[in-house]
Amino acid sequence: SKGEELFTGVVPILVELDGDVNGHKFSVSGEGEGDATYGKLTLKFICTTGKLPVPWPTLVTTLSYGVQCFSRYPDHMKQHDFFKSAMPEGYVQERTIFFKDDGNYKTRAEVKFEGDTLVNRIELKGIDFKEDGNILGHKLEYNYNSHNVYIMADKQKNGIKVNFKIRHNIEDGSVQLADHYQQNTPIGDGPVLLPDNHYLSTQSALSKDPNEKRDHMVLLEFVTAAGITHGMDELYK
């Protein structure tokens, strides 16, 4: 796709999030870079409003799984890469995230190029959380598991539907599940690639910047598309 050509090198990323969870309002600002050749993201996020009212790991899918245009699609799968094909005009990404036995996040993001920078601007609203639950009670460990993110075409809306389940580790050794339902639709009216069913395999590492006084998260992530085999004719070339 034409959009794919915008991702040949390292691309700067800007992320802006405004959130409200159970009436606790907050903002997060992030910057870093993405390299789609390797499916690599390096980002640093800062809570610009003081202390973040929710655990950082609960925002990873909104912040970095928010820029799935940096996923590495192998050559034989490039015609299934909706995310890059929607660029530079970008796409709207909407999600509902259900935390098992707790509340939910609803998010709406616009992901697009502004100049040479890929920008992810998000509004997040969280409701029905227990004040002493795993999320508002800050009981999650500061780490992140690997996940597969399942993608299918949504021809009606000229976009994709995505769903997956995140496993958050809790300090007591148990797990907090979070079910994600995602819809992506193009902002522009140019042609986009509608994929066959496949998935993104994601690995994320969270860390801290020892010199950063503000509440923050440093993230390194690798994302690769998989799940579609080479056609038989490919094998015999």
Rank of each mutant, 00 (worst) to 15 (best):
F99I: 02
E16D: 09
N143G: 15
F164V: 09
L59H: 01
D233V: 06
R108P: 00
D189A: 06
G115D: 08
S27I: 05
K130E: 06
F99C: 01
V10K: 04
I151F: 02
K112Q: 07
S85T: 05
G173C: 04
T48N: 06
N143A: 11
K213Q: 04
L41R: 03
P195T: 05
S29A: 13
F164H: 03
H168Y: 06
P195A: 07
H198P: 01
S146N: 12
N134D: 07
K40Q: 05
I13F: 02
I122T: 03
H138R: 09
K100M: 08
Y144H: 07
I166T: 09
D18E: 15
K157E: 14
M217L: 07
Q93H: 02
N158Y: 06
G190A: 03
S71C: 14
K51M: 10
E31G: 08
G188A: 02
K125N: 15
A205T: 15
E33G: 05
N104K: 11
T224N: 08
M152I: 14
V28M: 02
I160F: 02
T42N: 09
N158I: 04
N104I: 15
K84E: 01
K139E: 06
R167H: 15
L43Q: 01
H180R: 00
K112R: 12
K44T: 13
F70Y: 03
N22D: 06
L52Q: 00
K157R: 14
D35A: 03
D154N: 13
L63P: 00
M77R: 05
T62A: 06
L177F: 14
P53L: 03
S207R: 09
Y181F: 12
D35N: 08
M152L: 10
T117K: 08
K100R: 10
T8A: 12
I187S: 06
D172G: 13
Q68H: 05
D189G: 11
I127M: 14
R72C: 14
T107S: 14
E4V: 10
L140P: 02
S71R: 00
L17P: 00
K84R: 02
I228M: 15
P53A: 02
H198Y: 04
L124R: 00
G3A: 15
Y38C: 14
H24Q: 15
I127A: 15
H230R: 12
V111A: 04
S29T: 14
V67L: 08
G227W: 11
T96N: 11
K78E: 06
